[in-house]
Amino acid sequence: MEGNRRAPRPLPYATCNEDEQDMAKGLKAGDKVSWKSHGGEAHGKVVRKLEKPTTIKGHKVAASKDNPEFLVETEEGKRAAHKPGALRRD
Rank of each mutant, 00 (worst) to 15 (best):
W35Y: 12
P10R: 10
E41A: 04
G26V: 07
S34H: 03
I56N: 03
A62V: 11
F70A: 01
K52L: 15
P10L: 12
T74M: 14
T54N: 09
P12L: 05
E2G: 08
V47G: 07
K32V: 14
L50H: 05
P53F: 05
G40Y: 10
E51K: 14
Q21P: 01
E69V: 01
G26M: 10
V47Y: 05
K78T: 02
A81F: 02
K28A: 14
R9K: 15
A7N: 13
H59W: 08
D22M: 13
D90H: 03
E41Q: 08
D22P: 06
G30C: 12
E20Q: 15
G3R: 09
V61Y: 01
A80M: 13
R9Q: 13
K57E: 09
D22K: 15
K32D: 15
A86Q: 06
K36T: 10
I56H: 04
I56E: 00
A63N: 03
R79Y: 06
P10E: 14
E69I: 00
V61S: 09
T55L: 04
R5P: 00
E76D: 14
M23G: 00
R6L: 09
P68Q: 09
A29Q: 12
Y13C: 10
K32M: 15
A80H: 03
S37C: 09
D31K: 12
K83F: 04
T55S: 09
V72A: 02
A42W: 03
K83Y: 05
K52W: 14
D90Y: 02
E69Q: 07
